[in-house]
Nucleic acid binder design. Structure first.
Length: 552
RNA sequence: GCCCCCGUAGCUCAACCGGACAGAGCAACUGCCUUCUAAGCAGUAGGUUGCAGGUUCGAGUCCUGCCGGGGGCACCA
Protein backbone atom coordinates (compact mmCIF):
# COMPACT_ATOMS: atom_id res chain seq x y z
CA UNK A 1 0.00 0.00 0.00
CA UNK A 2 1.24 3.42 -0.92
CA UNK A 3 0.12 4.77 2.42
CA UNK A 4 2.46 2.51 4.34
CA UNK A 5 5.31 3.37 2.02
CA UNK A 6 4.77 7.05 2.58
CA UNK A 7 4.64 6.54 6.33
CA UNK A 8 7.97 4.83 6.10
CA UNK A 9 9.32 7.62 3.91
CA UNK A 10 8.33 10.25 6.45
CA UNK A 11 9.83 8.34 9.36
CA UNK A 12 13.08 8.14 7.47
CA UNK A 13 12.95 11.82 6.68
CA UNK A 14 12.66 12.65 10.35
CA UNK A 15 15.50 10.33 11.19
CA UNK A 16 17.70 11.91 8.54
CA UNK A 17 16.80 15.37 9.77
CA UNK A 18 17.82 14.37 13.25
CA UNK A 19 21.07 12.81 12.00
CA UNK A 20 21.82 16.04 10.17
CA UNK A 21 21.04 17.93 13.37
CA UNK A 22 18.29 19.88 11.65
CA UNK A 23 15.92 18.53 14.26
CA UNK A 24 16.71 17.86 17.92
CA UNK A 25 16.92 14.22 18.91
CA UNK A 26 13.58 14.07 20.64
CA UNK A 27 11.32 11.05 20.72
CA UNK A 28 9.25 10.81 17.58
CA UNK A 29 5.70 9.50 17.73
CA UNK A 30 4.70 6.82 15.32
CA UNK A 31 4.07 8.42 11.98
CA UNK A 32 0.64 7.93 10.61
CA UNK A 33 -0.82 9.64 7.62
CA UNK A 34 -4.24 11.17 7.41
CA UNK A 35 -6.52 11.59 4.49
CA UNK A 36 -7.14 15.29 4.16
CA UNK A 37 -10.75 16.24 3.82
CA UNK A 38 -10.01 18.84 1.19
CA UNK A 39 -8.48 17.84 -2.13
CA UNK A 40 -6.23 20.91 -2.25
CA UNK A 41 -4.39 19.43 0.72
CA UNK A 42 -3.22 16.54 -1.36
CA UNK A 43 -3.77 12.80 -1.08
CA UNK A 44 -2.09 12.22 2.26
CA UNK A 45 -1.10 14.54 5.04
CA UNK A 46 1.12 14.24 8.06
CA UNK A 47 0.60 16.26 11.20
CA UNK A 48 3.81 14.97 12.68
CA UNK A 49 5.37 18.43 12.75
CA UNK A 50 2.52 19.70 14.87
CA UNK A 51 3.05 16.91 17.33
CA UNK A 52 6.79 17.43 17.49
CA UNK A 53 6.58 21.17 18.00
CA UNK A 54 6.42 21.06 21.77
CA UNK A 55 9.22 18.66 22.49
CA UNK A 56 11.44 20.04 19.73
CA UNK A 57 10.75 23.58 20.89
CA UNK A 58 10.42 24.77 17.33
CA UNK A 59 7.58 26.16 15.29
CA UNK A 60 5.47 23.48 13.59
CA UNK A 61 5.84 25.16 10.24
CA UNK A 62 9.60 25.13 10.51
CA UNK A 63 9.64 21.45 11.44
CA UNK A 64 7.34 20.66 8.55
CA UNK A 65 9.74 22.41 6.20
CA UNK A 66 12.65 20.40 7.53
CA UNK A 67 10.77 17.13 7.20
CA UNK A 68 9.78 18.00 3.66
CA UNK A 69 13.36 18.89 2.80
CA UNK A 70 14.65 15.52 3.97
CA UNK A 71 11.88 13.55 2.32
CA UNK A 72 13.08 11.45 -0.54
CA UNK A 73 10.16 11.25 -2.88
CA UNK A 74 9.45 8.20 -4.87
CA UNK A 75 8.01 8.08 -8.32
CA UNK A 76 4.48 7.73 -7.04
CA UNK A 77 4.64 11.13 -5.43
CA UNK A 78 4.20 14.25 -7.50
CA UNK A 79 4.79 16.79 -4.77
CA UNK A 80 5.53 17.25 -1.08
CA UNK A 81 4.22 20.53 0.26
CA UNK A 82 4.29 22.30 3.55
CA UNK A 83 1.13 24.03 4.66
CA UNK A 84 0.24 26.04 7.75
CA UNK A 85 -0.03 25.43 10.60
CA UNK A 86 2.48 22.65 10.00
CA UNK A 87 1.20 19.93 7.74
CA UNK A 88 3.27 18.04 5.21
CA UNK A 89 1.08 17.18 2.27
CA UNK A 90 1.73 14.52 -0.32
CA UNK A 91 0.22 14.51 -3.74
CA UNK A 92 0.26 11.37 -5.84
CA UNK A 93 1.49 11.50 -9.41
CA UNK A 94 -1.24 11.28 -12.08
CA UNK A 95 0.83 8.86 -14.14
CA UNK A 96 1.27 6.58 -11.15
CA UNK A 97 -2.42 6.73 -10.33
CA UNK A 98 -3.37 5.82 -13.87
CA UNK A 99 -1.01 2.87 -13.80
CA UNK A 100 -2.79 1.50 -10.73
CA UNK A 101 -5.77 0.62 -12.90
CA UNK A 102 -3.80 -2.24 -14.34
CA UNK A 103 -2.78 -3.26 -10.85
CA UNK A 104 -6.40 -3.37 -9.72
CA UNK A 105 -7.42 -5.43 -12.72
CA UNK A 106 -4.59 -7.81 -12.07
CA UNK A 107 -5.57 -8.25 -8.44
CA UNK A 108 -9.11 -8.91 -9.62
CA UNK A 109 -11.55 -10.05 -6.99
CA UNK A 110 -8.80 -10.14 -4.43
CA UNK A 111 -8.22 -6.42 -4.68
CA UNK A 112 -8.67 -5.04 -1.21
CA UNK A 113 -7.07 -8.00 0.54
CA UNK A 114 -4.31 -7.20 2.99
CA UNK A 115 -2.03 -9.49 4.94
CA UNK A 116 -2.57 -7.99 8.36
CA UNK A 117 -3.88 -11.20 9.93
CA UNK A 118 -1.07 -13.40 8.67
CA UNK A 119 -3.32 -16.42 8.78
CA UNK A 120 -4.04 -16.10 12.49
CA UNK A 121 -7.09 -18.09 13.53
CA UNK A 122 -9.97 -15.98 14.67
CA UNK A 123 -13.54 -16.63 15.54
CA UNK A 124 -16.48 -14.30 15.29
CA UNK A 125 -19.60 -15.21 17.17
CA UNK A 126 -22.69 -13.16 16.50
CA UNK A 127 -26.49 -13.13 16.75
CA UNK A 128 -26.75 -16.36 18.81
CA UNK A 129 -30.37 -15.52 19.54
CA UNK A 130 -32.13 -17.98 21.81
CA UNK A 131 -34.14 -20.54 19.89
CA UNK A 132 -37.42 -19.38 21.34
CA UNK A 133 -38.64 -17.25 18.45
CA UNK A 134 -37.76 -16.06 14.97
CA UNK A 135 -34.99 -13.55 14.30
CA UNK A 136 -36.36 -10.08 14.93
CA UNK A 137 -35.34 -6.72 13.49
CA UNK A 138 -33.18 -5.85 16.46
CA UNK A 139 -31.01 -8.90 15.75
CA UNK A 140 -30.43 -7.42 12.32
CA UNK A 141 -27.89 -5.08 13.72
CA UNK A 142 -25.78 -7.76 15.34
CA UNK A 143 -26.01 -9.84 12.24
CA UNK A 144 -24.93 -7.04 9.93
CA UNK A 145 -22.07 -6.00 12.20
CA UNK A 146 -20.84 -9.52 12.90
CA UNK A 147 -21.10 -10.81 9.38
CA UNK A 148 -19.44 -7.77 7.83
CA UNK A 149 -16.72 -7.89 10.42
CA UNK A 150 -16.09 -11.55 9.60
CA UNK A 151 -15.92 -10.70 5.90
CA UNK A 152 -13.47 -7.89 6.46
CA UNK A 153 -11.27 -9.89 8.80
CA UNK A 154 -11.10 -12.65 6.25
CA UNK A 155 -10.08 -10.07 3.64
CA UNK A 156 -7.48 -8.80 6.07
CA UNK A 157 -5.78 -12.16 6.12
CA UNK A 158 -7.25 -13.84 9.17
CA UNK A 159 -8.50 -17.39 9.13
CA UNK A 160 -12.04 -16.64 10.18
CA UNK A 161 -14.64 -18.94 11.62
CA UNK A 162 -18.23 -17.77 12.03
CA UNK A 163 -20.18 -19.29 14.83
CA UNK A 164 -23.65 -19.21 16.33
CA UNK A 165 -24.12 -20.39 19.88
CA UNK A 166 -27.37 -22.27 20.19
CA UNK A 167 -28.70 -21.87 23.71
CA UNK A 168 -30.45 -25.21 23.83
CA UNK A 169 -29.88 -25.97 27.48
CA UNK A 170 -31.28 -23.08 29.43
CA UNK A 171 -34.45 -22.33 31.29
CA UNK A 172 -35.69 -20.25 28.37
CA UNK A 173 -35.99 -23.21 26.06
CA UNK A 174 -37.86 -25.02 28.81
CA UNK A 175 -40.38 -22.21 28.98
CA UNK A 176 -40.45 -22.29 25.22
CA UNK A 177 -41.13 -26.00 25.24
CA UNK A 178 -43.81 -25.54 27.87
CA UNK A 179 -45.54 -23.02 25.64
CA UNK A 180 -45.14 -25.22 22.62
CA UNK A 181 -46.61 -28.16 24.45
CA UNK A 182 -49.61 -26.11 25.54
CA UNK A 183 -50.23 -25.08 21.92
CA UNK A 184 -49.75 -28.64 20.81
CA UNK A 185 -52.27 -29.92 23.34
CA UNK A 186 -54.72 -27.23 22.25
CA UNK A 187 -54.60 -28.69 18.75
CA UNK A 188 -56.02 -31.87 20.22
CA UNK A 189 -58.80 -30.08 22.05
CA UNK A 190 -57.25 -30.01 25.47
CA UNK A 191 -58.09 -26.93 27.43
CA UNK A 192 -54.71 -25.79 28.67
CA UNK A 193 -53.19 -22.35 28.98
CA UNK A 194 -49.70 -21.39 27.92
CA UNK A 195 -47.52 -21.13 31.02
CA UNK A 196 -46.95 -17.84 32.79
CA UNK A 197 -43.97 -16.07 31.27
CA UNK A 198 -44.35 -18.14 28.13
CA UNK A 199 -44.32 -17.06 24.53
CA UNK A 200 -47.73 -15.94 23.29
CA UNK A 201 -46.62 -15.23 19.72
CA UNK A 202 -48.61 -16.77 16.92
CA UNK A 203 -45.54 -18.49 15.52
CA UNK A 204 -45.76 -20.91 18.42
CA UNK A 205 -49.10 -22.14 17.09
CA UNK A 206 -47.58 -22.72 13.65
CA UNK A 207 -44.73 -24.57 15.26
CA UNK A 208 -47.16 -26.76 17.18
CA UNK A 209 -49.04 -27.50 13.97
CA UNK A 210 -45.81 -28.53 12.38
CA UNK A 211 -45.11 -30.96 15.17
CA UNK A 212 -48.59 -32.36 14.78
CA UNK A 213 -48.05 -32.91 11.08
CA UNK A 214 -44.76 -34.56 11.75
CA UNK A 215 -45.57 -36.63 14.78
CA UNK A 216 -49.33 -36.84 14.99
CA UNK A 217 -50.43 -37.24 18.59
CA UNK A 218 -47.39 -39.24 19.61
CA UNK A 219 -45.97 -36.35 21.64
CA UNK A 220 -49.04 -36.20 23.81
CA UNK A 221 -48.42 -37.12 27.42
CA UNK A 222 -51.27 -38.15 29.68
CA UNK A 223 -53.28 -35.08 30.75
CA UNK A 224 -51.59 -33.10 33.50
CA UNK A 225 -48.21 -34.66 32.96
CA UNK A 226 -45.18 -32.72 31.70
CA UNK A 227 -44.04 -32.81 28.10
CA UNK A 228 -41.61 -35.44 26.92
CA UNK A 229 -37.98 -34.47 26.32
CA UNK A 230 -38.51 -35.30 22.68
CA UNK A 231 -40.94 -32.40 22.36
CA UNK A 232 -38.41 -29.99 23.79
CA UNK A 233 -35.67 -31.14 21.46
CA UNK A 234 -37.85 -31.30 18.42
CA UNK A 235 -39.27 -27.88 19.16
CA UNK A 236 -35.85 -26.33 19.53
CA UNK A 237 -34.69 -28.04 16.36
CA UNK A 238 -37.64 -26.74 14.38
CA UNK A 239 -37.19 -23.28 15.84
CA UNK A 240 -33.58 -23.36 14.74
CA UNK A 241 -34.75 -24.33 11.26
CA UNK A 242 -36.79 -21.15 11.20
CA UNK A 243 -33.86 -19.09 12.46
CA UNK A 244 -31.52 -20.61 9.90
CA UNK A 245 -33.97 -19.74 7.14
CA UNK A 246 -34.22 -16.19 8.46
CA UNK A 247 -30.46 -15.85 8.43
CA UNK A 248 -30.06 -17.41 5.02
CA UNK A 249 -32.52 -14.88 3.70
CA UNK A 250 -30.10 -12.08 4.55
CA UNK A 251 -27.07 -13.98 3.31
CA UNK A 252 -25.62 -15.03 6.64
CA UNK A 253 -23.97 -18.43 6.71
CA UNK A 254 -22.23 -19.92 9.69
CA UNK A 255 -19.33 -22.31 9.76
CA UNK A 256 -20.59 -23.86 12.93
CA UNK A 257 -23.70 -23.98 15.05
CA UNK A 258 -22.45 -24.67 18.52
CA UNK A 259 -24.76 -26.45 20.91
CA UNK A 260 -24.65 -25.18 24.48
CA UNK A 261 -25.86 -28.56 25.64
CA UNK A 262 -22.88 -30.27 24.08
CA UNK A 263 -20.70 -28.56 26.67
CA UNK A 264 -22.35 -30.73 29.31
CA UNK A 265 -22.60 -33.85 27.18
CA UNK A 266 -18.95 -34.06 26.24
CA UNK A 267 -17.42 -33.08 29.56
CA UNK A 268 -16.20 -29.64 28.49
CA UNK A 269 -18.13 -28.06 31.31
CA UNK A 270 -16.48 -30.26 33.92
CA UNK A 271 -13.05 -29.60 32.50
CA UNK A 272 -13.62 -25.87 32.48
CA UNK A 273 -14.72 -25.93 36.11
CA UNK A 274 -11.74 -28.04 37.07
CA UNK A 275 -9.54 -25.53 35.28
CA UNK A 276 -11.03 -22.69 37.32
CA UNK A 277 -10.70 -24.60 40.54
CA UNK A 278 -7.08 -25.37 39.81
CA UNK A 279 -6.49 -21.66 39.44
CA UNK A 280 -7.99 -21.07 42.85
CA UNK A 281 -10.70 -18.73 41.64
CA UNK A 282 -13.65 -20.76 42.81
CA UNK A 283 -15.27 -20.54 46.23
CA UNK A 284 -18.31 -22.16 47.78
CA UNK A 285 -20.67 -20.45 50.11
CA UNK A 286 -24.38 -20.42 50.83
CA UNK A 287 -24.56 -23.71 49.02
CA UNK A 288 -23.57 -22.18 45.70
CA UNK A 289 -20.36 -22.14 43.71
CA UNK A 290 -18.94 -18.69 42.93
CA UNK A 291 -16.26 -17.30 40.71
CA UNK A 292 -14.39 -14.91 42.95
CA UNK A 293 -13.76 -11.90 40.85
CA UNK A 294 -12.26 -9.31 43.13
CA UNK A 295 -8.71 -10.06 42.04
CA UNK A 296 -9.78 -10.41 38.40
CA UNK A 297 -11.04 -6.92 37.85
CA UNK A 298 -14.73 -7.48 38.23
CA UNK A 299 -16.73 -5.77 40.92
CA UNK A 300 -18.42 -8.72 42.49
CA UNK A 301 -18.43 -12.46 42.55
CA UNK A 302 -20.79 -14.35 40.31
CA UNK A 303 -22.58 -17.60 40.77
CA UNK A 304 -21.44 -20.47 38.59
CA UNK A 305 -23.52 -23.23 40.13
CA UNK A 306 -26.75 -22.62 41.98
CA UNK A 307 -27.41 -24.18 45.32
CA UNK A 308 -29.78 -26.47 43.45
CA UNK A 309 -26.77 -27.85 41.64
CA UNK A 310 -27.84 -26.39 38.31
CA UNK A 311 -25.19 -24.39 36.47
CA UNK A 312 -26.00 -20.80 35.54
CA UNK A 313 -25.84 -19.32 32.08
CA UNK A 314 -22.60 -17.76 33.18
CA UNK A 315 -21.13 -21.20 33.84
CA UNK A 316 -22.15 -22.25 30.35
CA UNK A 317 -20.47 -19.23 28.92
CA UNK A 318 -17.30 -19.88 30.87
CA UNK A 319 -17.24 -23.42 29.55
CA UNK A 320 -17.98 -22.14 26.06
CA UNK A 321 -15.07 -19.72 26.16
CA UNK A 322 -12.86 -22.37 27.66
CA UNK A 323 -13.71 -24.43 24.60
CA UNK A 324 -13.10 -21.57 22.19
CA UNK A 325 -9.90 -20.23 23.66
CA UNK A 326 -8.27 -23.29 25.14
CA UNK A 327 -9.69 -26.46 23.60
CA UNK A 328 -10.11 -25.17 20.08
CA UNK A 329 -7.42 -22.58 20.64
CA UNK A 330 -8.54 -19.66 18.52
CA UNK A 331 -5.90 -17.01 18.75
CA UNK A 332 -8.57 -14.37 18.88
CA UNK A 333 -12.24 -14.53 19.68
CA UNK A 334 -14.68 -11.75 18.92
CA UNK A 335 -18.18 -11.77 20.38
CA UNK A 336 -20.84 -9.40 19.12
CA UNK A 337 -23.36 -8.73 21.83
CA UNK A 338 -26.35 -6.45 22.21
CA UNK A 339 -26.21 -3.77 24.89
CA UNK A 340 -28.66 -5.78 26.97
CA UNK A 341 -25.71 -8.09 27.68
CA UNK A 342 -23.35 -5.25 28.47
CA UNK A 343 -23.32 -6.05 32.18
CA UNK A 344 -22.06 -9.50 31.31
CA UNK A 345 -18.83 -8.17 29.80
CA UNK A 346 -16.76 -7.64 32.98
CA UNK A 347 -17.82 -11.07 34.21
CA UNK A 348 -16.71 -12.71 31.00
CA UNK A 349 -13.42 -10.83 31.03
CA UNK A 350 -12.84 -11.92 34.60
CA UNK A 351 -13.65 -15.50 33.70
CA UNK A 352 -11.21 -15.49 30.82
CA UNK A 353 -8.52 -14.11 33.09
CA UNK A 354 -9.32 -16.87 35.58
CA UNK A 355 -8.83 -19.39 32.82
CA UNK A 356 -5.36 -18.00 32.37
CA UNK A 357 -6.00 -16.58 28.93
CA UNK A 358 -4.45 -13.27 27.86
CA UNK A 359 -7.28 -10.75 27.93
CA UNK A 360 -6.45 -9.34 24.47
CA UNK A 361 -7.52 -12.62 22.92
CA UNK A 362 -11.15 -11.92 23.70
CA UNK A 363 -12.86 -8.88 22.27
CA UNK A 364 -16.49 -8.20 23.00
CA UNK A 365 -18.24 -5.77 20.74
CA UNK A 366 -21.34 -4.33 22.31
CA UNK A 367 -23.80 -2.68 20.01
CA UNK A 368 -26.51 -0.37 21.27
CA UNK A 369 -30.03 -1.57 20.97
CA UNK A 370 -32.26 -0.54 18.11
CA UNK A 371 -35.26 1.60 18.88
CA UNK A 372 -38.05 0.49 16.62
CA UNK A 373 -40.51 3.08 15.50
CA UNK A 374 -43.62 3.24 13.47
CA UNK A 375 -43.66 6.87 12.53
CA UNK A 376 -43.25 8.69 15.81
CA UNK A 377 -44.58 5.82 17.87
CA UNK A 378 -42.02 3.65 19.59
CA UNK A 379 -42.57 -0.07 19.16
CA UNK A 380 -41.52 -2.18 22.10
CA UNK A 381 -40.06 -5.46 21.08
CA UNK A 382 -40.96 -8.25 23.36
CA UNK A 383 -41.27 -11.92 22.68
CA UNK A 384 -43.07 -12.24 25.98
CA UNK A 385 -45.68 -9.65 25.08
CA UNK A 386 -46.06 -11.27 21.70
CA UNK A 387 -45.19 -8.15 19.76
CA UNK A 388 -42.22 -9.05 17.68
CA UNK A 389 -41.34 -7.45 14.41
CA UNK A 390 -39.51 -10.17 12.60
CA UNK A 391 -36.52 -9.60 10.41
CA UNK A 392 -38.31 -11.61 7.79
CA UNK A 393 -41.22 -9.25 7.45
CA UNK A 394 -38.93 -6.24 7.17
CA UNK A 395 -36.76 -7.97 4.60
CA UNK A 396 -39.79 -8.95 2.57
CA UNK A 397 -40.81 -5.32 2.62
CA UNK A 398 -37.56 -3.53 1.85
CA UNK A 399 -35.16 -6.23 0.72
CA UNK A 400 -32.14 -7.88 2.30
CA UNK A 401 -29.64 -5.53 0.68
CA UNK A 402 -31.24 -2.41 2.09
CA UNK A 403 -31.53 -3.96 5.53
CA UNK A 404 -27.91 -5.02 5.68
CA UNK A 405 -26.63 -1.76 4.28
CA UNK A 406 -28.70 0.22 6.74
CA UNK A 407 -27.71 -1.74 9.81
CA UNK A 408 -24.03 -1.83 9.06
CA UNK A 409 -23.97 1.90 8.37
CA UNK A 410 -24.19 2.84 12.02
CA UNK A 411 -21.35 2.67 14.51
CA UNK A 412 -21.99 0.01 17.14
CA UNK A 413 -21.83 2.62 19.90
CA UNK A 414 -24.49 4.82 18.40
CA UNK A 415 -28.04 4.36 19.43
CA UNK A 416 -30.16 4.01 16.38
CA UNK A 417 -33.73 4.40 15.37
CA UNK A 418 -35.33 2.12 12.86
CA UNK A 419 -38.53 3.57 11.52
CA UNK A 420 -40.57 0.83 9.89
CA UNK A 421 -42.68 3.32 7.94
CA UNK A 422 -39.67 5.23 6.78
CA UNK A 423 -37.88 2.04 5.84
CA UNK A 424 -40.74 1.09 3.56
CA UNK A 425 -41.26 4.55 2.16
CA UNK A 426 -37.59 5.13 1.56
CA UNK A 427 -36.62 1.71 0.40
CA UNK A 428 -36.30 3.07 -3.13
CA UNK A 429 -34.21 5.96 -1.86
CA UNK A 430 -31.92 3.83 0.23
CA UNK A 431 -28.27 4.69 -0.41
CA UNK A 432 -27.61 1.06 -1.20
CA UNK A 433 -29.32 1.47 -4.56
CA UNK A 434 -27.10 4.40 -5.33
CA UNK A 435 -24.09 2.14 -5.01
CA UNK A 436 -25.68 -0.79 -6.79
CA UNK A 437 -26.76 1.51 -9.58
CA UNK A 438 -23.16 2.52 -10.20
CA UNK A 439 -22.28 -1.15 -10.52
CA UNK A 440 -25.19 -1.85 -12.85
CA UNK A 441 -24.32 1.19 -14.95
CA UNK A 442 -20.83 -0.12 -15.48
CA UNK A 443 -22.20 -3.50 -16.42
CA UNK A 444 -24.34 -1.69 -19.00
CA UNK A 445 -21.33 0.09 -20.40
CA UNK A 446 -19.32 -3.10 -20.67
CA UNK A 447 -22.23 -4.76 -22.44
CA UNK A 448 -22.53 -1.83 -24.81
CA UNK A 449 -18.79 -1.90 -25.50
CA UNK A 450 -18.78 -5.61 -26.21
CA UNK A 451 -20.66 -5.02 -29.46
CA UNK A 452 -18.16 -2.45 -30.65
CA UNK A 453 -14.79 -3.32 -29.23
CA UNK A 454 -13.58 -6.89 -29.31
CA UNK A 455 -11.12 -6.53 -26.46
CA UNK A 456 -9.63 -3.81 -24.33
CA UNK A 457 -6.87 -5.88 -22.80
CA UNK A 458 -4.36 -3.79 -24.69
CA UNK A 459 -5.81 -0.51 -23.38
CA UNK A 460 -3.20 2.04 -22.45
CA UNK A 461 -4.06 3.39 -19.02
CA UNK A 462 -1.59 6.23 -19.33
CA UNK A 463 -4.27 7.92 -21.40
CA UNK A 464 -6.30 8.37 -18.24
CA UNK A 465 -5.54 11.94 -17.26
CA UNK A 466 -8.91 13.54 -16.68
CA UNK A 467 -9.46 14.78 -13.14
CA UNK A 468 -12.57 12.62 -12.75
CA UNK A 469 -10.71 9.55 -13.94
CA UNK A 470 -7.95 10.09 -11.43
CA UNK A 471 -10.40 10.84 -8.64
CA UNK A 472 -12.04 7.50 -9.31
CA UNK A 473 -8.69 5.72 -9.15
CA UNK A 474 -7.82 7.49 -5.91
CA UNK A 475 -11.03 6.28 -4.37
CA UNK A 476 -10.49 2.71 -5.54
CA UNK A 477 -7.06 2.64 -3.97
CA UNK A 478 -8.54 3.39 -0.58
CA UNK A 479 -10.17 0.00 -0.25
CA UNK A 480 -7.14 -1.90 1.08
CA UNK A 481 -6.52 0.87 3.58
CA UNK A 482 -10.10 0.64 4.66
CA UNK A 483 -10.00 -3.13 5.04
CA UNK A 484 -6.97 -2.80 7.23
CA UNK A 485 -8.52 0.03 9.19
CA UNK A 486 -11.73 -1.85 9.85
CA UNK A 487 -9.84 -5.00 10.77
CA UNK A 488 -8.00 -2.99 13.41
CA UNK A 489 -10.82 -0.82 14.69
CA UNK A 490 -13.51 -3.47 14.31
CA UNK A 491 -15.83 -0.72 13.12
CA UNK A 492 -17.35 -1.92 9.88
CA UNK A 493 -19.68 1.06 9.52
CA UNK A 494 -16.94 2.77 7.53
CA UNK A 495 -17.61 0.44 4.64
CA UNK A 496 -21.00 1.72 3.46
CA UNK A 497 -19.71 5.29 3.50
CA UNK A 498 -16.78 4.23 1.41
CA UNK A 499 -19.06 2.43 -1.02
CA UNK A 500 -21.11 5.56 -1.45
CA UNK A 501 -18.03 7.70 -2.02
CA UNK A 502 -16.79 5.25 -4.60
CA UNK A 503 -20.15 5.30 -6.36
CA UNK A 504 -20.11 9.10 -6.32
CA UNK A 505 -16.66 9.11 -7.90
CA UNK A 506 -17.92 6.82 -10.62
CA UNK A 507 -21.12 8.74 -11.29
CA UNK A 508 -19.11 11.95 -11.54
CA UNK A 509 -16.76 10.32 -14.01
CA UNK A 510 -19.70 8.97 -15.97
CA UNK A 511 -21.18 12.44 -16.36
CA UNK A 512 -17.95 13.97 -17.52
CA UNK A 513 -16.29 11.26 -19.55
CA UNK A 514 -17.78 9.27 -22.36
CA UNK A 515 -16.39 5.75 -22.14
CA UNK A 516 -17.17 4.26 -25.53
CA UNK A 517 -16.46 6.85 -28.19
CA UNK A 518 -14.86 7.25 -31.61
CA UNK A 519 -11.49 7.50 -29.95
CA UNK A 520 -10.71 3.81 -29.73
CA UNK A 521 -7.52 4.10 -27.72
CA UNK A 522 -9.17 6.28 -25.09
CA UNK A 523 -12.22 4.03 -25.08
CA UNK A 524 -10.08 1.03 -24.27
CA UNK A 525 -8.29 2.85 -21.49
CA UNK A 526 -11.58 3.94 -19.99
CA UNK A 527 -13.04 0.48 -20.32
CA UNK A 528 -10.16 -0.72 -18.21
CA UNK A 529 -10.94 1.97 -15.70
CA UNK A 530 -14.62 1.12 -15.40
CA UNK A 531 -13.90 -2.60 -15.31
CA UNK A 532 -11.60 -1.93 -12.38
CA UNK A 533 -14.17 0.28 -10.71
CA UNK A 534 -16.73 -2.46 -11.12
CA UNK A 535 -14.48 -4.91 -9.35
CA UNK A 536 -13.92 -2.57 -6.46
CA UNK A 537 -17.59 -1.69 -6.14
CA UNK A 538 -18.52 -5.35 -6.12
CA UNK A 539 -15.88 -6.05 -3.50
CA UNK A 540 -17.02 -3.24 -1.25
CA UNK A 541 -20.63 -4.37 -1.54
CA UNK A 542 -19.63 -7.98 -1.06
CA UNK A 543 -17.88 -7.18 2.20
CA UNK A 544 -21.09 -5.62 3.45
CA UNK A 545 -22.99 -8.68 2.27
CA UNK A 546 -24.89 -6.79 -0.38
CA UNK A 547 -25.39 -7.99 -3.93
CA UNK A 548 -23.85 -6.24 -6.93
CA UNK A 549 -26.48 -6.43 -9.68
CA UNK A 550 -25.61 -6.44 -13.38
CA UNK A 551 -28.71 -4.46 -14.21
CA UNK A 552 -31.37 -2.54 -12.39
C1' G B 1 -28.26 5.12 43.88
C1' C B 2 -23.99 2.82 40.96
C1' C B 3 -21.94 1.18 35.97
C1' C B 4 -21.86 1.26 30.29
C1' C B 5 -23.47 3.95 25.75
C1' C B 6 -25.40 8.17 23.28
C1' G B 7 -26.83 13.67 22.44
C1' U B 8 -23.79 16.81 15.64
C1' A B 9 -28.37 20.18 9.74
C1' G B 10 -35.84 19.30 9.61
C1' C B 11 -35.01 13.35 9.76
C1' U B 12 -31.28 9.14 9.91
C1' C B 13 -26.20 9.22 10.70
C1' A B 14 -20.41 10.15 9.53
C1' A B 15 -16.12 12.82 11.06
C1' C B 16 -9.24 8.24 10.65
C1' C B 17 -3.89 8.06 17.75
C1' G B 18 -7.02 15.69 19.50
C1' G B 19 -5.51 18.72 13.62
C1' A B 20 -6.65 22.48 8.08
C1' C B 21 -13.28 25.81 6.53
C1' A B 22 -17.74 19.77 11.02
C1' G B 23 -19.46 16.06 6.15
C1' A B 24 -23.09 12.40 3.64
C1' G B 25 -27.99 10.31 2.56
C1' C B 26 -33.13 11.54 2.86
C1' A B 27 -36.52 15.73 2.93
C1' A B 28 -36.77 21.20 0.57
C1' C B 29 -35.60 24.56 -3.59
C1' U B 30 -33.30 25.65 -8.91
C1' G B 31 -31.44 23.65 -13.37
C1' C B 32 -29.79 19.11 -16.74
C1' C B 33 -32.26 13.14 -20.47
C1' U B 34 -32.46 12.63 -29.53
C1' U B 35 -25.85 10.50 -26.96
C1' C B 36 -22.73 3.91 -22.86
C1' U B 37 -29.00 3.07 -17.40
C1' A B 38 -31.98 10.28 -14.82
C1' A B 39 -32.24 4.61 -8.99
C1' G B 40 -27.90 9.80 -12.15
C1' C B 41 -25.43 14.90 -12.34
C1' A B 42 -24.66 20.28 -11.20
C1' G B 43 -26.18 24.04 -7.83
C1' U B 44 -28.90 26.57 -3.42
C1' A B 45 -30.39 26.50 1.52
C1' G B 46 -29.78 24.20 6.17
C1' G B 47 -25.01 24.05 12.44
C1' U B 48 -23.45 28.22 19.09
C1' U B 49 -21.71 19.73 17.67
C1' G B 50 -27.41 19.28 24.65
C1' C B 51 -25.63 23.16 28.59
C1' A B 52 -21.53 25.21 31.74
C1' G B 53 -16.55 25.11 32.98
C1' G B 54 -11.43 23.08 32.26
C1' U B 55 -6.83 20.99 29.66
C1' U B 56 -4.28 22.29 24.83
C1' C B 57 -0.83 25.97 19.87
C1' G B 58 -5.52 23.48 18.45
C1' A B 59 -11.61 20.13 21.27
C1' G B 60 -17.49 17.27 18.03
C1' U B 61 -13.26 14.21 19.94
C1' C B 62 -9.87 14.48 26.38
C1' C B 63 -11.35 15.90 31.97
C1' U B 64 -15.29 17.71 35.67
C1' G B 65 -20.34 19.01 36.66
C1' C B 66 -25.35 19.42 35.00
C1' C B 67 -29.66 18.27 31.62
C1' G B 68 -32.01 14.63 28.38
C1' G B 69 -32.44 9.55 26.25
C1' G B 70 -31.17 4.02 25.85
C1' G B 71 -29.18 -0.28 28.36
C1' G B 72 -27.41 -2.89 32.70
C1' C B 73 -26.92 -3.67 38.12
C1' A B 74 -30.41 -12.00 39.94
C1' C B 75 -28.57 -18.55 42.74
C1' C B 76 -32.76 -15.05 34.60
C1' A B 77 -30.65 -15.53 29.91
Amino acid sequence: MIKQELERVISEAVRRAQDADDLPAVAVPETTLERPQRPEHGDYASSLALRLARSARMSPLEIAGIIAKHTEVEEAVASVDVAPPGFVNFRLAPSWLAAQVDAVLQAGERFGDVSLGKGESLQVEYVSANPVGPIHVGNGRGLALGDTLANVLAAAGYKVQREYLVNDAGTQTETFAGTLYARYQQLFGREVEIPAGGYPGEYMIHLAERLKEEKGDSLLAPPGEPYAPELHDLGVARMMDVIKDDLTMVGVHYDRWFSERSLYADGTYEKAMAHLRAGGFVTEREGAVWLSASELGDEKDNVLVRSTGAPTYFASDVAYHYDKLIVRGFQRVINVWGADHQGHVPRMKAAVAALGVEPERLTIIVYQLVTLKRGTEVVRLSKRAGEIVTLREVVEEVGADAVRFFFVSRAADSHMDFDLELAKRQSAENPVYYVQYAHARIAGILLHAKERISSFDDGDVSLLTHESELALVRKMLQLPELVEGVALSLEPHQLPYYAMDLATAFHDFYEKCRVVSDDEALSKARLKLVAAAKLVLARALGLIGVSAPERM
